[in-house]
């Protein structure tokens, strides 16, 4: 959820119209959660969930095997995945642009969260920026500065590290 807000704020910093929201439900730490960001050159009028996203960010690679992550995803879009393993799924690689980053390790290096629950929101958005170039690193760091209440420097550095470390697979 926080990642979707930071992403929206980053695009806003570049003059876009934005909207960000969670898949509306009861939130529990550790449960799979979906959040959405809409970005447009014009005012965003649709006020409903997103069923056919252009791009996808996966904060936990476990979800690739447990959830149909590409449901509705438009072919040719980006999938940015937080993982330390290689992605060998031929179907994913054939239909989408895949990028990976070890956001857990980057987050821990900057003391964001714990080993059991690293906080990867800022790193993954840095990786999204690095892979897709849809939004600049400066805009992402500016969003983190405004949005994150604690450890601003660490979070901005995590985003920058992930921006540089993200691997483009396909």
């Amino acid at each position: 959820m926080i990642a979707s807000e930071i992403l929206a704020d980053a695009f806003f910093n570049e003059g876009k119209y934005v909207q960000a929201f969670p898949a509306f439900g009861v939130e529990r730490r550790g449960a799979p959660v979906v959040a959405f960001t809409r970005v447009s050159d014009e005012e965003v009028r649709e006020r409903c969930q997103i069923y056919e996203p252009d791009h996808l960010i996966v904060l936990d690679a476990v979800l690739i095997d447990t959830v149909n992550i590409t449901e509705g995803l438009k072919k040719g879009g980006w999938i940015v995945i937080n993982t330390n393993r290689p992605v060998e799924n031929g179907e994913l690689m054939g239909n989408y642009h895949i990028a990976t980053v070890d956001a857990n390790q980057i987050a821990l290096r900057h003391n964001l969260g714990s080993r059991a629950a690293p906080i990867v929101n800022t790193a993954i958005i840095g990786a999204f920026s690095g892979a897709t170039k849809l939004v600049s690193l400066d805009a992402v760091k500016q969003a983190i500065d405004g949005f994150v209440p604690l450890k601003k420097e660490e979070n901005m550095q995590a985003a920058e590290d992930a921006f540089n470390a993200v691997k483009i697979i396909s």
């Binding site: 979707s4 807000e5 929206a8 704020d9 806003f12 119209y17 934005v18 909207q19 960000a20 929201f21 969670p22 509306f24 965003v44 006020r47 409903c48």
Partner: peptide, 12 residues
């Protein structure tokens, strides 16, 4: 205002 569709939605 609508719950979630406004209350929990971030916009400018």
């Amino acid at each position: 205002m609508d719950a979630f569709f406004l209350s929990h939605t971030f916009e400018i």
